[in-house]
């Protein structure tokens, strides 16, 4: 709201909109150099590991959704990445493969963090890693809750933050921040609100 207003104001002034000086696009992504794990993994799992990048001293691997359990087991057992620090998803509605799943794993032995990113299409199922790292149990439920991505063989795939009979997946980009599951609200709270004005009926 406020920003729209401001735009109108600057138009009102009658000045030509100032052009920002063109900045050179900074590319933060670098190629990986001298990273032992990457060369080993690239050799061993040539068909899964697509690429590796380095951004702000942080390594990211890009993988394909195939036999990921072997890949992660190798990372845990041989490369000693013994903790799954985080697991999340990102939604890119314009891309062909809509979602990206991000594994954030940490090695206590090497004191090193590794991000593993995997693109998947809408509706594609992902093998759960909760067998390898038990800490993946809840974050996978959260990703299911927020994005609607299903995990195969997950021990207990239910919604975690939202109520169980909720219909939508709110962290998808096509879900507006003001949106709510109106049917759910009518069923449980007996109210229905206007999405635009926020008025309760």
């Amino acid at each position: 709201m406020a920003e729209e207003k401001n735009k109108n104001d600057s138009l009102e002034k009658g000045k030509a909109p100032r052009k920002p000086p063109k900045k050179e696009e900074v590319n933060l992504y670098e190629e990986i150099k001298d990273f032992d794990t990457f060369t080993k993994v690239k050799e061993k799992f040539a068909d899964i590991v697509l690429d590796g990048k380095r951004i702000r001293e942080q390594h990211i691997f890009y993988i394909k959704n195939e036999n990921i359990l072997d890949f992660f087991k190798y990372l845990r057992d041989e490369e000693k990445y013994d903790m799954l620090a985080d697991l999340t998803a990102i939604d890119y509605p314009d891309r062909e493969k809509r979602f990206a799943i991000l594994y954030n794993i940490y090695s206590f032995k090497k004191l090193e963090r590794l991000l593993v990113r995997m693109d998947i299409a809408d509706g594609e199922e992902v093998e759960t890693v909760s067998e390898i790292w038990p800490s993946a149990n809840w974050p996978e439920r959260e990703v299911y809750d927020m994005f609607g991505i299903k995990f195969k063989n997950h021990p207990d795939l239910r919604r975690i933050l939202l109520p169980e009979d909720w219909k939508t997946h709110p962290l998808r980009k096509d879900f507006d921040v003001k949106n709510r599951d109106q049917d759910w609200m009518e069923r449980h709270l007996g109210i229905r609100e206007d999405v635009n004005s926020g008025e309760v009926k």
């Binding site: 590319n27 933060l28 951004i55 620090a85 985080d86 990102i90 954030n104």
Partner: peptide, 22 residues
């Protein structure tokens, strides 16, 4: 900020508090 993604974590009183920002 330029295009990119970053994970950064600190030692909060309760443990590792991290933010992953794209």
């Amino acid at each position: 900020p330029p295009k990119g993604e970053v994970y950064h974590s600190i030692e909060a009183p309760k443990g590792e508090l991290g933010f992953y920002v794209i």
